[in-house]
């Protein structure tokens, strides 16, 4: 019975998830575009600061409003901390980071909202160790949204708990979503004015890094996804952590 609850996602999206989806998928990109076109010249940094608000606010508000229980906080904190500390388990392999893989697993296992929070928290807190900078909001957003989309796709039944499905999603999302957003970010940070050429140049120069990152994510998901999901399921069953909706 419990196992069934775990593996069979609830296909109906809650109003909260919808609201967050609208905010994240429409309002934030709109702000970015609006900022780029209306605040022409060099106001891109400002946009990135706005994004942190946009990404944080709906989640923060919804999350704070429902007064999460101790165990929810703990799960998010533990997964985010694993993502941050996990980087040090691979100190000998540069560019090989497990963050995206862990965020996807969090989204699949605990839902879209938790996926986002784990990603954004990991992005934010890791910069307490590596130094905050103009890149912080971009990282928070990219990690967060990958976890969010993973959660939604899983809930909709488009993403399954199989290695293949997770690896395909992991690779694509790292390459397209993370690479896409982060490179856009550095394009706005590094090149003062917006031009397609400059953007293309940034994408081209970042491609190989993104590819390695995507391969790393696929690798991590290939080996880690099943044991990780099993571990999380065990915790859910053993301590009654089943997602309530």
């Amino acid at each position: 019975m419990q196992a069934e609850q775990l593996t069979k996602p609830n296909r109906r999206l809650s109003r909260r998830t919808l609201l967050s989806a609208v905010l994240i998928l429409i309002v934030i990109p709109a702000t970015i575009l609006m900022g780029i076109y209306l605040l022409n010249d060099r106001k891109y940094y400002f946009i990135s600061l706005l994004i942190i608000l946009y990404t944080m606010l709906p989640f923060a508000m919804v999350f704070e409003k429902r007064k999460p229980q101790a165990r929810e906080l703990i799960v998010i904190a533990v997964l985010a901390a694993i993502a941050v500390a996990g980087r040090s388990a691979f100190f000998m392999l540069p560019q090989f980071k497990p963050v995206v893989a862990i965020v996807i697993i969090a989204g699949v296992s605990f839902g879209a909202e938790a996926g986002f929070l784990v990603g954004a928290t990991a992005g934010f807190v890791s910069n307490f160790f590596f130094g905050q900078g103009p890149w912080t909001p971009w990282q928070m957003f990219s990690f967060g949204i990958i976890g969010f989309i993973a959660g939604i796709l899983f809930q909709k039944g488009l993403l399954r708990r199989t290695k293949l499905s997770l690896c395909v999603f992991g690779g694509l999302s790292t390459l397209v979503i993370y690479g896409g957003i982060i490179n856009l970010g550095s394009a706005t940070i590094f090149s003062p004015s917006f031009s397609w050429q400059a953007l293309l140049a940034v994408y081209a120069s970042g491609f190989w890094f993104d590819l390695v990152h995507a391969i790393a994510t696929v690798f991590f998901l290939f080996i880690l996804s099943r044991p990780m999901l099993e571990k999380l399921d065990r915790i859910k069953v053993k301590y009654g952590l089943i997602e309530r909706e």
Binding site: F90, M92, K231, I235
Partner: peptide, 25 residues
């Protein structure tokens, strides 16, 4: 081999972290 061993470490750490976190809760 290194990456695999790194994953084993991460995996052990995850179990340890999750099991201990319940007590923190």
């Amino acid at each position: 081999v290194r990456a695999r061993n790194g994953l084993t470490i991460l995996s052990i750490m995850t179990t340890w972290a999750l099991e201990n976190a319940i007590e923190t809760a």
